[in-house]
Amino acid sequence: MTYARRTWIVLWKDLLSERRSKETLNALFFFALLLLFLFQFALGADRERLTAALPGLLWLGFILSGLVGLGRAFLAERENDCWEGLLLVPGDKSAIYLGKVAGNLILMLLVEAILLVLFAVFFDIDLGAHPIRLIVVIGLGTLGFAAVGTLFAAMTAHVRAREVLFPVLLLPVQVPVLLGAVKATEAVLLGEPLSAVGHWLGLLAAADTIYLTVGVLTFDAILEA
C-alpha cells in the first residue's frame, strides 16, 4: 500500500464517520453561532468598533472552534479502543498524521466557511470583494493551526487533564500563525493586494512548512504505545 493511499484511507475514514454521525460538525456549527452572540454582546452595536475588530474576531472564532474540533481529533480512536489499530498500520506512521491533518483541515475550513457566512449576514459585512485573497490567507493560517493542533491532540489524547492541557500547549505556540493571519486578513478586507502583506504570508508559509515537517518526522514517537 503506498504512502499516499494510506494517508487517503485515514482521511476517508474520518470524513466518512463524520458524514454519518455529524457529531463534531453539528456541535461546531452551534458553537460558531453562539460565538456570534458573544461577540455582539462584548462589542455592542457600534459598527465602527466592530469593523475595526473584525479580523481579530474572525480569527478568534476560527481558533476557538478549531480548539473544540481539534480536541476531538483522536477521540474516536481513544474511546473505541482503536489506538492499537493505528499502531498496527504497516510502514511509516506519518501517513496517519497527514491523513489526520487533512481531515482536520477540511473540518476547520468547513466551520470557517460557516462562520464567514454568519459574519457576513449578521454583521452586514462584505467579505466577498476579494475571495481568492481571503481563501489564500485563511488556508495558510488554518493549515498551520491544523498541523500543530493534530500533533498536540495526539499527544494530549492520553493525558488525564487533556481538555485543559491541549489549549494551554497549543495557543502560545500558535501566536505567530494567529498574528500573521489576523494582519493578512485585515489587509485583505481593506482591499490591499497580497503583495502588501508578503512578509506575513511568507511567515505563515514558513510556519506551515516547519510544523508539517516536524509533525511528519516526530509522529512516530507520539503514536507508540
Binding site: L151, V175, L179, G180, L203, A206, I210, A221
Partner: peptide, 18 residues
Amino acid sequence: AVLGIVAALDIPLVHFSV
C-alpha cells in the same frame, strides 16, 4: 521531546511575528 522541538523552532517565528 516533540514539544521541545516544536517550541524551539517556534521561537524565531514568534520573534519575527511579534
